[in-house]
Design a protein around this nucleic acid. Sequence first.
DNA 1: TTCATATTTGCATACTAATGCAAATATAAA
DNA 2: TTTATATTTGCATTAGTATGCAAATATGAA
Lengths: 99, 99
Amino acid sequence: MKKKTIDKFSHLFKVLSDPNRLSMIRHLCGCREANVGELSSCCSIDVSVVSRHLSKLKEAGVLGARKEGKEVFYDLKAADLAKMLRELADEIEKADCCR
Amino acid sequence: MKKKTIDKFSHLFKVLSDPNRLSMIRHLCGCREANVGELSSCCSIDVSVVSRHLSKLKEAGVLGARKEGKEVFYDLKAADLAKMLRELADEIEKADCCR
DNA sequence: TTCATATTTGCATACTAATGCAAATATAAA
DNA sequence: TTTATATTTGCATTAGTATGCAAATATGAA
């Protein structure tokens, strides 16, 4: 496996390993999208904390964002995330890598 | 997605997000197996630190271990890890979950 | 048993990241 | 412009984890 691949996934995994972030992802899995305040109340996390988590998830390509008035709606980029995970799975099983 | 699934992957991702652990995984990707001392010298990490990282990776199901005399040889469980990642990818894309 | 080597564990320190309050910013309505 | 609401940012504190030395343990050789 290339070091570049390693670094890419190191960051993704760090972002995905926080319980509060996963809790938010889980909620976004059950609805099309949600704004910062909704996620704050449904996950019982301070709104400032939610805001910071959301920007990290967006930066990592896990979430998309859409601004509407003074609200920001986030949605899970499920297809992209699934693709990244499958690519890593393929990489790990490559014969020239792990044998 | 079930909370149980979330917790499972939260732990896996935390384990996979550390740079030293990934460095060790990367090395194990290029050889069949390696013992604690080998990984310590090739990754330039103190042997006690390597030992602790290895036990975390083993506990998470990422590595297997085989004791031979006074040495312990670790190997990457590539197929298992790839399977876990693909299962999560499937879960994320499930229609009743993300829509 | 004593000695040498491999690994693990105890413990104190250092690092990194999460948390939550308050203040700042952004946007729309009055 | 003033007011109200949503979100972000600054900052200090806290929490969790990694690190590395030294000591303890495990195993085999002498």
